[in-house]
Amino acid sequence: MNDYIKKTDKYGKIWIWTAAFIIVMIPVVMCIAYNAWPPIVPVLKGLLGVAPMFWTVGVIEVITYTPMLGVGGTYLGFVTGNITSIKAPAALTAMENMGVEPDSEEGEVVSTIAIATSSIVTTLIIALGVALLALISPILNSPTLQPAFDNILPALFGGLGVVYISKNWKLSIAPLVFMVALFLIAPGLSSAVGVLVPVGIIITLGAGRIMYKKGWI
């Protein structure tokens, strides 16, 4: 790590541990203010309903996205969230447009700028939306617009897919064929797509290794 990235790592750790403390303190403050500590059993039961799935996805996401987002982008992206639907596509698109390598210092800079910008814009849009809720709620909840909100991910990944697949079409065949077949056979898995991202990566790496050794790519 060079000096800039080392310092980014140091500052990033300070910010993310502070964020972790604040996140835990939010329910603590609520419990103190309302003198309403929840009984432990329902919390554990409730947690049991989501933790096995979401802790697994959390571990997978950290391992998968950290190399893509870079040091600053990771520390920021994992605090502000929505990595698959905004942060990772924003970082990838920005690096692609700027023609920089993801694991270079230029890539680190561009990815961080993209993730910071999208975090600020998202936070401001949500804040503005909350301020104008009475006004915009009927519009956003209208059945006419519902299909748009239901299809954010295909609309986003269709365009992004063209950029990456056209440049790496040989490497794309195996994971694409596998994923299409998998979702056709087991449609229910679409709700667990986060878990399937590393499966896609392993298949791409396996196929890539074979093609690389054979000199096809």
């Binding site: 993801p102 697949i165 299409v180 979702f183 797509v193 896609g200």
Partner: peptide, 22 residues
């Protein structure tokens, strides 16, 4: 470089695949 591209393509493939789920 192929390793890094594989990370992107693995993610993109998984999300593209979900469009076929229904």
């Amino acid at each position: 470089d192929i390793f890094m591209t594989s990370l992107f393509l693995g993610m993109i493939s998984a999300f593209l695949g979900t469009a076929f789920a229904h």
